[in-house]
Each structure stands twice: as C-alpha cells, then as structure tokens.
Design a protein around this nucleic acid. Structure first.
Length: 883
RNA sequence: GGGAGUAUAGCUCAGCUGGUUCAGAGCGCCUGCCUUACAAGCAGGAGGUCACUGGUUCGAUCCCUGUUACUCCCACCA
C-alpha cells in the first residue's frame, strides 16, 4: 500500500470526527459503570473560540477521553451561556444598525429579535469545538436560558426568597451607564487611570476665607452636601460648626468632622457627595446628610445638574473646571493616577449609584462553601488558589443579582399597590402570584412584574445540577448518577463568579459538592507575556491554527506549554512540534506497514528488544499515571512523547527493522504491531485523530478486505482499554541503557572523527563488569560495530571512552592524535580525582559518618569505590598512551 | 494599603520528605549527514556561581532571615 510521506491531518480529522458522531461514541447514559462527569464551563453563546477556550477544552477532552478508555462512563456535557449584558449589547447594536431603536420596541418584540439572533449566530463556538476533537455528548447540549435551565433558575429564586436569602433593597451599586444596568462587585475591573487632581476653593459662608478641597471628580460638586475634615486636624479647627459655599454652585453646606478623612491626602479636606460615592454615602448616612443625585442613568447630568443638564459626565468635568477657573475658584491642578472602576462587559467607567436592586445574602452559605475547600473535600489544582478562595469568602458581601436588562431570566416578582403601599409577591409564575395576591391581600387587580432580569451567573451557578434537571426533579436517575461531577476545568479569573457559587448551589440544593477537583488553567498570553485580546490583535485564530498544524498538533502545542495554574506564553511555533510528532508517528506507520514477514526464526536481538520495549512501556505508564493523578498533563504528554519518539522509533524500530528487501519474523512483527497499537492508545487522549487513524491501519494489517471493512466500521480506538502499568524489570532497563551508552560512545567517535556510519568499527572492552553480552548484537547493529571483544590490556592506537567503570577502546586504522587524547583523559582524570576528594572528605568527617543515615553513608562508599576504579582505569589509559 | 505566588541552561518549565551518579527535560543553538519510514528527519555536541545576602546543618537548588525583580488577587483613600 502506498502512503504519503507527509501526514495530512485535514481529511483524517474530518473523517474520524464524523465517524465518532455517527457511532454516537460520545453519548452517555447512566449504567453500571463508574461515572466520570465533566460539565463544560459554558462559553458565551455569542462568543467565538479563542485560545483560552482551546486550552480549557483540550484539557477537558484529554481527561474525558482517558476516563472513557479506563472503562468509566464518561459524560462531558456541552452548552452555552446566555451572557445577558454582552448578548443584549450585541442585539441592541444589531438593531441599531438596522435603524431600530431598542426603546421603540416592547419587551416581547425585543426578545423575539434576540432569540432570532441567538438561533442564527449563537453557538458557533460549539461547532468550532468539534474541530478541536472535543468529545462532548452533543445530545445533551444545553443553554442557560433553555426551558429546563430557565425554570430551574426561577424555582431557585423563589425558593431562596422564601427562605429569606433573597431580598430587595436600595443600595449603592455599581452602575454601568452604557449597558444601563447594575453590575456586581466582581464585574468591576479597577484600572490604573491617568487623571487630574483638582484643588477647589470652598469659601466659608459669611467670611473672607476659604478652604481648599482636592477632588478627582469636580463634576460631582453639584451633589455636594458637606465638606469633611479630620476632627484632630489643627489646620481646620477654626472651621468647626461653619458652613462653606460649594464653588460655582453657591449652595452652602456644613463642615463635618470625621476620622474617616486621611489628613495626608490632598489638603486633608474632603467633599462629600453621598449620591455618588460609596464612602460619602456612608458618611451621609452617619450624619444625616442630604443626598442629591445629579446623574441620569446614561451618565449625563440630570435636572439637578444646573446649567450642565444633559451634558455627559466627562464633558461636564472639563466644562466645570473651565468655568471655575474663570471664576478664580481653582487653586491648582495636579496630574494624578488612580484606580477607576470599569465595567467588565462594556468597559464603561462605573458610576456608583443608589438604586433598588435584588440581593442574595451570602454569609451563611459562604461558610459552608469555604468548609468543603478547606478540608479538601474539593481539591484545587494548584492548591494555591485555596488562599484566594478563602480570602474572598471570608470578606464576602451580598450578591447583587438583578440586572436592568431584558435578555435573561425575568425576576419572578410581582408588585401590587394597596392603599398607597407596594407589596411584593414572589411566585413561580403570574398565576401563582395572582393566587397569592387574592389569598393574602384579597387583591384581584393587575400585577406588575419586576422589569429586571437575573445576573447570568445566577443561572450558571446551577449548571452542574440543572444540566441533569436536578432542580426541577430532585433525585431523578440522571442527577443521582452523574452528580457530583468529577473534574471542573476552568480559568482562575472566574473562581468567584462561578466556582465558588457552584459550590454554594451544590451545598444548598444537593447537600453535596458539585465536583471533586478543580483544575485551574493558566491564562493564555502571547509570547511577550501580554494577555491575548482583540484590541491588541495578538490572539491567533484557533481554527486557522488547526488548519495549519492539525487539531492534534495544536492540542499538543497547548498542552506542552500548560502547567496547571501557570500563565502560558503561547508561541505558535510550539504547534509545529505537535505537527512534527503527528508526522513522526505517521512515518513509523509507513515503515511498519511496509514490512514483509517470512517463515524465519526470531533472532535474539529482536526477542530481547521486545522484552525491553515492554518493560520500558510499563515504566513510562507508571510515570504517566502518576502525572495524571497530580493533573500534570504536560508532563504526562512529554513522557508519552519520548516513549514514542526516543524509545519506540529511534531505538526499538531501528533494532528490529529488517534490512531492505528482507523479511521479518512473524513473532517480532506481531509484537511490534501490538506495541505500536498500545502506544496509540496511550497517546489517544492527547492526539485523538492521528492515533485513531494509525490504530485502525495497524488493526487491519494482514486482514482480508472484508475483515478490515468490518473492523473499520465497528471499532474505535476510543473504546479500547487504556494500558495500565505492570511490574517491570529494572535490571533489563539499566542494561539497555548501558548498551545505548556504548552505542552513543561509538557514534560519538565516528562523529568527531568524521568517519562514515557505513564503516564498521571494533570495540574492545576492558575491566568489564558490564552485563551486556546478551545485548551485543544490538550494539553491533545500532553502532555498526564489527566485533566486541574483551581485552586484558588496552590496545595501542585506539580511541577510548568509559561507560560506568568499563573502559571501551575503538582501534583506529588512521593515526590517533595522542596529544588530544591525552588531554581528554587528563581532564577526565582531574574531574574524577576532585570528585573522589570530596567523597573522601565527607567520609572522613566523623559527624557525617555518625550523623547521616547508614544508606547514605553506604552510597558514599560506593561512590568512592567507583571513583577509584575509574581513576585507576584512566591512569592506565594515560600510561598506555604515553608509552 | 493588605495578601499570595514566582525567581533553575537562549526560551518554557521539572526537580517529591535537604545527601554531586540531580543540576534535568522539551524547544532553540552548534557540527556532520538527503543512511530507501520520516530534512516536519538522523547522529553527535555545547550551554547553568540553581536571583542576591546572611543563617540552620556534617551537608542546601531544596529549610529559615533579609534584599531585589516580576506576576496575580483583594481593598472605599477623595
């Protein structure tokens, strides 16, 4: 059969993914096997695949595929998140592009547009995941706003409200003036921003004096209702009980004294704007100050804005300073850098704003959520994130869960006006609400539903439960079987948003943890260490990478640079390594599939090589298992990589490879196919496509077409059992290493001497304690060695090297440069003598001999013996050369 | 301002409970090879005062002090 010398991933990947789908190999149903459940961190339904997803989903797929091959019932549930703010913003923009103003639409009309948009453009990301090879159970694809999930959210809201854990209140919230909604504390990103610090003059009422107040936000002076200084500040004692005039506005406000003020900052005097700053708000409460809200929802000045009404807050800042400067009320202006809150979703500058919102109480539930992580019921990998997690939960504040948007689960609260007061009814639906209204208040009029929707995280925190319908149907067979899930793979930046809250929901609704392990991936950065972002344009398109290197290549590239929890500087070049590896495996297949077998007896070198390769595989499997236990995926992959490339291809195949045109014995051939197949199994979780392709080819070698068709149509590598480590013989492995050292020694001589690999060389070994007689034929073959003979005396005119304590000599037909050889030997001698000295020093140290454990001392003695033998050998060689 | 983490070859990182056969890996680099599986390859090789400083110890890359540099998280300093 003719196979191309370059592996072409494209057709292979498409073929096998379709095969897996057709055979429904990703689908899971509860059965007798041990479940292995993973829920995908749902990406935004509007999103497209970026490198972070690539990494995250590659890791999930590796774990899921491995679990499946270990005989577990693997279920990886995919889905998307409705992402209210982001999606609503996109829909609004789409409508605006069509000339439709959102405000001209009714809620229902808007939702219709949004759903249409979602159906048309949403979920691209899930399709892209297939290119990566993700083995998700697509039949279970969910959406945080589909029927089951929507209803689950509503039920949970009602339940928590009835338990008294959800309440409505007027609070200072983070207002996003662009999205026109409140956002939670976690959704505010504080960024270093270069601004100015303005020093403004506040004249004292009725006197010819003024004090200077520093502020970064002069546009808020219309909302000033006090000026505050520190009670112990001697500079301002005279102000006690006085009133000052807000510059440019003319309003007189009291001077209050509170220890909150930092005397060192600015002038030590602070203006108080209770409506627009959380601290000022608190002081306002404390001193009963008036609160004047001067901003409209969109960040422009409202009717309280005097002559600046309608102006944007930032335009107003400029204008007001200009006006105050003209009025001589600005003392000075300094450059100033501070942290300004920005909206995570829209990047608009957050405006603290008083408004009525829904909150969820966090104190009680947070304690339980902390406990299960503290006691390692849930394990974090790496564990350092426990600190972050603890700190947040110990300082947690109530969660603002309402959003002033339409796209999302509408808050199931209804208002009714009775006798001038407003009552709230929280119910599963309007009918229930009406019933309650009638029963409780004897009210039969119309009810007004709350306009707001819930925070998106208020649906995704239920994800591991709601995916199996565990909220609506507690105790159903699916939730019982699949919950708790096994591993959660996510980025550390959503540890609070999502991970912590899922743990809370698990405690509240399942009385159990939602997952056993959390693997925090690093953040993918570019090779300069910058975060990948659209603005910088430094994020490669994953699909293009797949086109270029193959999905297997990209997966390997991701995994090789991704130790858990460390940020990974991603360099496209590393995908090349993955592609090259695919190609290497492919060419090994080409080699093996081209071999002919014949009725010949297996020779000794093949027999022992097979033994060795089996032992080596067992040894590496042990390493890989250990790595997986510790979630060290890149190490596991590297171990498998070296096993395949260095041991299997460079060593094993080279040994058993028959000379061109000659056949191989059947026994060795079968063993080779078997080993190769198992290698594919080991690599399959990492590189699903190329391994499936090669595995199938290997299975069909020597079969009739009919048998091959049957195999190809009915079997998949995915369902094969992952090889497990077995006991192995360390001695054989060590002996092989020695043989390889001798081979390397010979090759080295060849290389440095410029000798052709085709010219056979003889090797004489002196003082040999080496037990490599049974490996001699291998040394002959790989080193192109004509003879290996033990000698008593070092032969003249030979080059030498040392393996362990054995002296190896390679006689040269051409002249040997004695000086050069001598120098090499003397350098070597010097090193070993130094080494010996340090060992002897240690051994003659009474404290060491008595203090160190016996085994360590014994080890040192061995070192001494070895070093002495080696030194003796070197001296002899030097003597020989000299004579 | 508080807290956490990291500093090991040119790059990215391993080094488990302290013991020079642990100073390692991959990539990169250098040299020589188109040896009929693979130049996306083969063979060989060279790179490191384990950030700096003191200490504990018979002995420290590994433990402790401090310094420096970088990263991340949290926080209401106008």
């Amino acid at each position: 059969m003719e196979i191309a010398s370059k592996y072409d991933p494209r057709s292979v990947e498409e073929k096998w993914y379709q095969f897996w789908i057709d055979k429904r190999l990703f689908h899971s149903e509860p059965d007798q096997r041990v479940p292995y459940t993973v829920v995908i961190p749902p990406p935004n339904v509007t999103g497209v695949l970026h490198m972070g997803h690539m990494l995250n989903n590659t890791i999930q797929d590796v774990l899921v595929r491995r679990a499946r091959m270990q005989g577990k019932n693997a279920c990886w549930v995919p889905g998307t998140d409705h992402a209210s703010i982001a999606t609503e913003a996109k829909v609004v923009k789409m409508l605006a592009d069509k000339g439709i103003d959102k405000r001209s639409l009714s809620r229902d009309e808007f939702m219709k547009h949004a759903w249409e948009w979602k159906e048309q453009y949403g979920g691209i990301i899930l399709k892209q995941l297939r290119r990566l090879g993700a083995s998700c159970d697509w039949d279970r694809t969910a959406f945080t706003m589909d029927e089951v999930r929507y209803e689950s959210v509503i039920r949970v809201f009602v339940d928590l409200y009835n338990k008294g854990l959800i309440y409505r209140g007027v609070r200072m919230v983070n207002w996003d003036p662009q999205a026109l909604t409140a956002v939670s504390d976690e959704e505010v990103i504080y960024k270093e921003t270069r601004g100015k610090l303005f020093y403004l003059r506040y004249h004292v009422e009725g006197e010819d004096k003024y004090i200077v107040v520093a502020t970064t936000r002069p546009e808020t002076i219309m909302g000033d209702t006090a000026v505050c200084v520190h009670p112990d500040d001697e500079r301002y004692q005279w102000l006690k009980g006085k009133r000052v005039i807000v510059p440019g506005i003319g309003r007189a406000v009291p001077v209050i004294m509170d220890e909150y003020v930092d005397r060192e900052f600015g002038t030590g005097a602070l203006k108080i704007t209770p409506a627009h700053d959380i601290n000022d708000y608190n002081l306002g409460m404390k001193y009963g100050l008036e609160s004047i809200d001067i901003f409209a929802d969109n960040g422009t000045l409202n009717d309280n804005g005097g002559k600046y009404v309608g102006m944007d807050r930032f335009a107003c800042r400029k204008q007001i300073i200009k006006d105050l400067e003209e009025a001589g009320l600005v003392e000075k202006v300094e450059d100033y850098t501070n942290k300004v809150g920005h909206s995570e979703r829209t990047d608009a500058v957050i405006e603290p704003k008083l408004s009525a919102q829904w909150f969820m109480r966090m104190d009680g539930i947070a304690k339980k959520a902390l406990q299960v992580v503290e006691d390692d019921t849930i394990r974090f990998h790496p564990a350092k994130f426990k600190n972050t997690y603890r700190h947040w939960l110990e300082n947690i504040k109530d969660w603002c869960i309402s959003r002033q948007l339409w796209w999302g689960q509408r808050i199931p609260a209804w208002y009714l006006d009775i006798d001038g007061r407003v009552e709230i009814i929280v119910a599963l639906n309007e009918e229930e609400a009406k019933k309650t209204a009638a029963e409780k208040y004897n009210y039969t009029g119309t009810l007004r539903q709350d306009e707001d929707v819930l925070d998106t995280w208020f649906s995704s925190w239920l994800w591991p439960i709601s995916l199996f319908d565990g909220i609506r149907n507690p105790g159903n067979p699916e939730i019982k079987y699949y919950y708790p899930t096994a591993d959660l793979i996510t980025a550390p930046d959503i540890i609070f948003f999502w991970v912590a809250r899922m743990i809370m929901a698990g405690e509240e609704y399942m009385h159990d943890i939602p997952f056993r392990n959390v693997y925090f991936t690093g953040i993918v950065r570019d090779k300069l260490g910058r975060k990948m972002s659209k603005q910088l344009g430094n994020s490669p398109d994953p699909i293009e990478l797949i086109e270029k290197y193959g999905a297997d290549g990209v997966r390997m590239g991701m995994l090789l640079t991704a130790p858990a929890g460390n940020d990974l500087p991603f360099d496209e070049a590393i995908c090349e390594q993955g592609r090259n590896f695919s190609n290497k495996l492919w060419n090994a297949l080409r080699l093996v599939s081209g071999w002919q077998t014949g009725d010949i007896e297996q020779n000794a070198e093949n027999a022992v090589s097979i033994q060795w390769m089996e032992q080596r595989m067992a040894q590496v499997l042990e390493e890989i298992e250990r790595d997986f236990d510790q979630y060290r995926l890149s190490e596991a992959l590297m171990a498998a990589y070296k096993l395949a490339w260095d041991d299997f291809c460079s060593c094993y195949l080279e040994i058993v490879k028959p000379a061109h045109g000659t056949p191989l014995d059947r026994e060795t051939y079968q063993a080779t196919l078997s080993i190769f197949s198992r290698l594919m199994l080991i690599l399959h979780p990492f590189m699903p496509f190329v391994t499936e392709e090669i595995w199938h080819t290997l299975q069909t070698i020597g079969k009739t077409d009919q048998q091959a068709d049957f195999l190809n149509a009915n079997y998949s590598i995915m369902n094969q059992r992952m090889p497990a480590s077995v006991l192995y013989d360390q001695r054989l492995l060590d002996q092989f290493d020695t043989a390889r050292e001798i081979i390397a020694g010979v090759r080295n001589i060849r290389n440095t001497r410029g000798l052709s690999p085709k010219e056979p060389l003889a090797v004489h070994i002196r003082n040999s304690e080496l037990r490599v007689q049974h490996l001699e034929s291998i040394i002959r073959k790989l080193g192109n060695v004509s003879e290996i003979t033990p000698v008593e005396e070092a032969p003249a005119g030979a080059l030498q090297f040392i393996v362990g304590t054995a002296e190896c000599y390679v006689p040269m037909s051409q002249n040997v440069d004695k000086g050069e050889e001598l120098k090499k030997l003397q350098d070597d001698l010097k090193y070993h003598e130094g080494f010996l000295r340090s060992v002897i020093a240690k051994l003659s140290n009474e404290k060491f001999v008595s203090g160190a454990p016996a085994a360590v001392v014994e080890k040192e003695r061995n070192k001494q013996r070895d070093a002495e033998t080696k030194i003796a050998a070197l001296k002899k060689q030097i003597d020989n050369l000299g004579s």
